[in-house]
């Protein structure tokens, strides 16, 4: 298993797409810092009365919008790019399929978890440094308030990577996998708004994007229509991961490469 993980790690770090995805994460960290800087200056210009009404988002808000997309692209490409080039034949020939599949999932999820957690931590800490002593809500709030969000952002991003990875192993197509994932993350949640209450909210709550917000919303983000508690939402997200990974594994082991 060590060989398989080391080989997959070698592959992932020598793929251009990985560098691009990490560059996008880094760019959104910078964007988050810029947003904090803008908010701090905006705050300086507010009258005391308007300061009381001011509602600032978390420092990593721009990053938290980009992370799920990066996670999905990384997870999908880990498996679908090999089908696109045909390199999957070589991979399957040199490593047993079970180990190869597990190693791919582990490495992709590990990289995404690390990138998401590190990016979020940097964005939040940079935000605090930029805001300094100003009592801006959320940005200047005690760090402890944001700890659950800080701790959970990585695992949630990794979950998105794994769902896309499993789906990619079934569909074997980059375009199909990323389109399906993005549609389900961007289009479906919007459509639930058209459904009558309480069904719209319930369905929204059970979609991965809604689950992510219910598990670890950045502090200060206006609460969505979620109806699930954080632990329940986490359990539902894990079910998504398990189903996607299970279906992907079945397809990966049974079908001809």
């Amino acid at each position: 298993m060590t060989d398989a993980i080391a080989a997959e790690w070698y592959k992932l770090r020598t793929a251009c797409s990985t560098a691009w995805i990490l560059a996008v994460v880094a760019a959104f960290v910078v964007l988050s810092a810029l947003s904090s800087w803008y908010l701090a200056h905006y705050w300086d210009g507010l009258s005391p009365r308007r300061r009381e009404e001011f509602d600032a988002p978390s420092a990593d808000q721009p990053l938290s919008v980009a992370l799920p997309v990066c996670a999905v692209v990384l997870g999908a490409l880990t498996v679908t790019s090999e089908y696109a080039t045909g390199m999957i034949g070589t991979s399957v020939a040199v490593l047993p399929r079970r180990r190869l599949y597990a190693a791919k999932a582990l490495v992709a999820a590990g990289v995404m978890l690390t990138a998401a957690a590190a990016g979020t931590a940097v964005a939040v800490l940079a935000g605090r440094a930029i805001v300094g002593g100003r009592p801006v809500p959320v940005l200047g709030a005690p760090l402890a308030d944001g700890v659950p969000h800080l701790l959970l952002t990585g695992p949630v991003a990794a979950a998105f990577t794994l769902i896309a990875f499993g789906l990619g192993a079934v569909l074997r197509s980059t375009a199909a996998t990323i389109t399906t994932m993005v549609a389900q993350m961007v289009v479906l949640p919007t459509l639930t708004g058209l459904l009558p209450s309480p069904y719209g909210e319930r369905i929204w709550s059970a979609l991965p994007e809604g689950l992510a917000e219910q598990i670890a919303a950045p502090p200060g983000v206006s609460a969505g229509p979620g109806v699930l508690s954080a632990p329940v939402a986490a359990a539902v997200l894990l079910v998504y991961v398990a189903v996607a990974l299970g279906a992907g594994r079945l397809s990966f082991l049974r079908r001809d490469a």
Partner: peptide
């Protein structure tokens, strides 16, 4: 083969596996 990878790295991951 993955076109973005360098020749040494293509063989590198294979060797590592």
């Amino acid at each position: 083969v993955h076109g973005g990878r360098r020749a040494f790295d293509h063989l590198g991951w294979l060797a590592r596996s």
